[in-house]
Nucleic acid binder design. Structure first.
Lengths: 221, 221
DNA sequence: AAAATGGCTTGATTCAGATCAAGTCTTGCG
DNA sequence: CGCAAGACTTGATCTGAATCAAGCCATTTT
């Protein structure tokens, strides 16, 4: 920690570029950071990280190049811990190693869920599942506010903003009303049927949210 | 290790079902195991594990339910290590913890690559990238043999077998001939242009293959 | 207050990939 | 050896989602 840098970053700044060597483990202390990947114009949101969570731990551990880029969505406070020190701490302190490992395992499982989602569900189902999960994470409240821009949700879910918009509208017939940022689940049963919710996929276990990676929590309302 | 079970498993046997508690860490000693996920009839290959590699390490570490199922593709020899002992070893032996962590980080990075692939490339591009990667992994040989059934490749790549078949055929125009199991890259430049190969995505680093997770290596020919 | 910017919606159209339906070829097995 | 099962291919058709093209609305800038 003594070697770490504490930085305030303005919004919309890219703090990590994929391909660069993983010199620092990043910790989001305040704000919100998007992990994304891009090739030839195309662009995909991989996750959104919220306090207090780390990102690109895997690259540090393996001393390999970053596979994702990162940019701030808001003004954020980041802690940059030199990878060397992270690896030293892992080797020296078994408690630290255990915690780091749990974090990593949580990220991995979050990504498995995300990938299963992409492969096994179509757009409407993904959205239904996402909304149900958001609702559950704040204690099964039927109403809440979307925590990020819709375009970001669309990119995360692997669809275009146009399609997300249309899908949101069409969900009115399946138990969920979306008006601007406001979401109201009017018929949970129906929405669950649409999502084809395998409890496993969206788990009752909160690890992915605890890990702060995936999309942020909504605010109840 | 003293607590582990050593098992011979016939082909096409499901050895792990998603949702079950992670009582054992599995190690593939011989053979080939498919990790997959399914909901309501739909089915998606997530990875293929080859010797010597572990699978479902993340679930063990977190003492959480499996997120993927596993079935043997061939007659396989598996080592089942009780999760309790794995966690004990992680806590007791920092060398073990470090190695486990590297393994986990490798799996994570493999999955990041896979997900980026799904989100950023269309089917033909994914296939081109896959073939180039296979070629590179055996030392840039232009000719090789597909290591697994095409239907499995199709599922892994998130497309139907029909589509894979058509795409394979159409690649003749882009520098690659596929005839049965045999693949011959006739124009690497062209194929690379199609794949839009960002070196980052498919990496020069061999970790994903070393981890034995993803699809198996082909045989040169 | 007007103008500009960026996010969101809506409609029309297109297209990649899925589905459906045969058929062929290979492989394992009684 | 002959049959059955399963993998793969091929063609015809359909459809979910992308793309293209405006327009709308809120927020910020001038």
């Amino acid at each position: 920690m003594r070697a770490a840098y504490d930085q305030q970053i303005p919004p919309h700044v890219t703090v990590v570029s994929e391909g660069a060597p993983a010199d620092f483990l990043h910790v989001v202390v305040e704000g919100m950071v998007e992990l994304f990947a891009s090739t030839q114009g195309r662009d995909a949101t991989m996750a959104v990280v919220r306090p207090v969570s780390t990102f690109i731990l895997a690259a540090c551990v393996r001393d390999a190049p970053y596979l994702m880029s990162a940019r701030t969505l808001q003004r954020s406070r980041l802690l940059l811990v030199p990878s060397v020190n992270v690896r030293a701490a892992v080797a020296a302190d078994s408690r630290f190693a255990l915690n780091a490992m749990e974090d990593l395992a949580g990220c991995y499982r979050g990504l498995v869920r995300h990938t299963k989602n992409l492969k096994l569900r179509n757009t409407r189902e993904r959205i239904a599942a996402y909304l149900l999960r958001q609702s559950r994470l704040i204690g099964d409240a039927p109403g809440f506010t979307l925590p990020v821009e819709k375009r970001l949700i669309a990119s995360y879910m692997g669809m275009t903003p146009e399609n997300l918009s249309r899908a949101f509208k069409s969900l009115a017939a399946d138990g969920c009303k979306i008006d601007g940022q406001r979401v109201i689940i009017t018929d949970r049963e129906r929405l669950e049927a649409l999502a084809g919710l395998s409890l496993l996929l969206d788990g009752p276990d909160p690890e992915a949210s605890a890990a702060g990676v995936s999309l942020p929590l909504p605010e109840a309302s």
